[in-house]
Design a protein around this nucleic acid. Structure first.
Length: 420
DNA sequence: TCTGGGGTCCTAGGACCC
DNA sequence: TCTGGGGTCCTAGGACCC
């Protein structure tokens, strides 16, 4: 059996944890640049605020209902996520951290009559030790565990745990779940299924394999088998190194000037290099893109990208920044209002499997040492303590974050003071 | 004024090889 | 008039996830 542990309204719950006056009140958390809604408390959901709604379009509702609005504070969320995951690790046989607020836990060694008890224990431990509310679904496959989790969250609010073990328990959630709420079923698949008059997971598992294979590819077939209780998605307790890494952001304001664009691009390139070094990989292709704001009808639009190849795979910041800026030279065109840019590193290989070039002029050993020093300093004194001149200091392009909460768990200045 | 960011996997089609 | 067959590799784009 497999359990899925999922934090309820995670970002909103994080904001509430250090600000208990928000209990019972509607909360929303906004994306980067305070652009759109990416998390809502239950109270905000009840007000009809939709996921992904642009911030400026919910303003009336926010004012009228006194909704608490926050910029996203990933340092806080990351730190609280670690706390939750640590409690899970200490009390589980094998855990796969699936995202910032979810983890799969393999319970195959556990006796069947202990499963529900185990779920209740985990729920209590996380509540007491961290304070973030969670839900737990337990079933024979990952897709069913996801479904059981959703059912627990909505229909088992007292316990927060649902075990889908006996046939009738599985059938209950299959009948309960609409196809669009199945893990792996997005808009396109939902449309195709609805056209066949298939609206619930219970109806979906009656479909014939060939039809599913033909219309929803092997991905759909895997989903179907998982729903029938046949595990097809492996447990992955050791995360594999990333196959591509990207850093991309919208700017806080529009940029038309090439020199001004160099700053964010250099920063994104550096951030990719740091991520590469963290997983001990190198890249041989740097992909750069820039584009205008497609929501501004009055602007002429321009989307362009280019891939710059490198002779020898590298994770040296200077080399990757240089390649990214070379890419910018190629794709930049004057006369446009640019809103967003990004750098992707693709063709990733392991650090210790590099094919050195015949005419390589770079001193690889020296570069490696320089990067180690750079990473060490920035790790100790905060990121960007040491950086390249081209990364700039002004950061006029940087994010808009007008409603940022404190870093309660990671910054000594922000730790709450308690009067006794 | 104002609409996120970072990933994975799969498929189709073209280039190329013998 | 007649113009193979089978295979691999690569890339772009689609669909999905949180």
């Amino acid at each position: 059996m497999i359990a899925l542990v999922d934090c309820n309204n995670f970002y909103a719950s994080c904001e509430r944890l250090f600000n208990p006056s928000l209990n019972g009140k509607p909360i929303v958390v906004l994306s980067n640049n305070d652009g759109c809604v990416i998390a809502r408390s239950n109270e905000a959901k009840d007000l009809g605020i939709k996921m992904g709604a642009p911030a400026f379009m919910i303003e009336d509702c926010v004012v009228k209902n006194n909704v608490a609005v926050f910029s996203s504070n990933y340092i806080l969320y990351g730190s609280l996520s670690n706390r939750v995951m640590n409690v899970l690790k200490e009390n589980s046989p094998a855990i796969e951290v699936y995202s910032i607020d979810e983890a799969f836990i393999n319970l195959s060694g556990m006796k069947h009559h202990d499963l529900f008890e185990w779920g209740m224990k985990i729920k209590e431990l996380v509540t007491n030790e961290v304070g973030i509310p969670i839900s737990i679904g337990i079933a024979s496959t990952k897709t069913l565990a996801k479904m059981a989790n959703r059912y627990a969250k909505k229909e088992r609010k007292q316990t927060g745990v649902y075990l889908a073990q006996e046939n009738w328990q599985v059938e209950k959630i299959l009948a309960y779940t609409k196809v669009e709420d199945i893990w792996g079923c997005g808009r396109q698949y939902t449309n195709k299924l609805n056209e066949q008059k298939i609206f619930t997971a219970a109806a979906f598992i009656q479909l014939n394999d060939d039809w599913v294979r033909k219309n929803l590819t092997v991905v759909g077939l895997r989903m179907l088998k998982e729903l029938r209780g046949m595990p097809c998605i492996e447990n992955d307790t050791m995360p594999a190194p990333k196959k591509c890494i990207q850093t991309a952001r919208s700017f806080g304001k529009l940029i038309s000037d090439k020199n001004e664009l160099q700053e964010p691009i250099a920063n994104y390139a550096n951030s990719c290099a740091v991520k590469l070094r963290k997983q001990k990989s190198c890249t041989s292709s740097v992909h750069v893109f820039i584009h205008t704001n497609r929501h501004r009808m009055q602007d002429v639009q321009y989307f362009k990208s280019v891939i710059v190849s490198l002779e020898v795979p590298t994770n040296d910041s200077a080399e990757i920044i240089k390649a990214a800026l070379k890419g910018l030279e190629i794709i930049f065109k004057p006369g446009y209002n640019f809103k967003k840019a990004g750098v992707l590193v693709i063709d990733i290989t392991s650090e210790n499997q590099i094919q050195y070039g015949l005419f390589d002029t770079v001193d690889r050993e020296k570069s490696k040492k320089a990067m180690q020093v750079l990473d060490k300093v920035n790790m100790k004194f905060g990121k960007d303590t040491v950086k390249y001149a081209v990364q700039g200091f002004k950061k006029k392009w940087k994010l808009k974050q007008e409603k940022l909460s404190h870093c309660y768990t990671t910054n000594i200045k922000d730790v709450l003071k308690i009067k006794i």
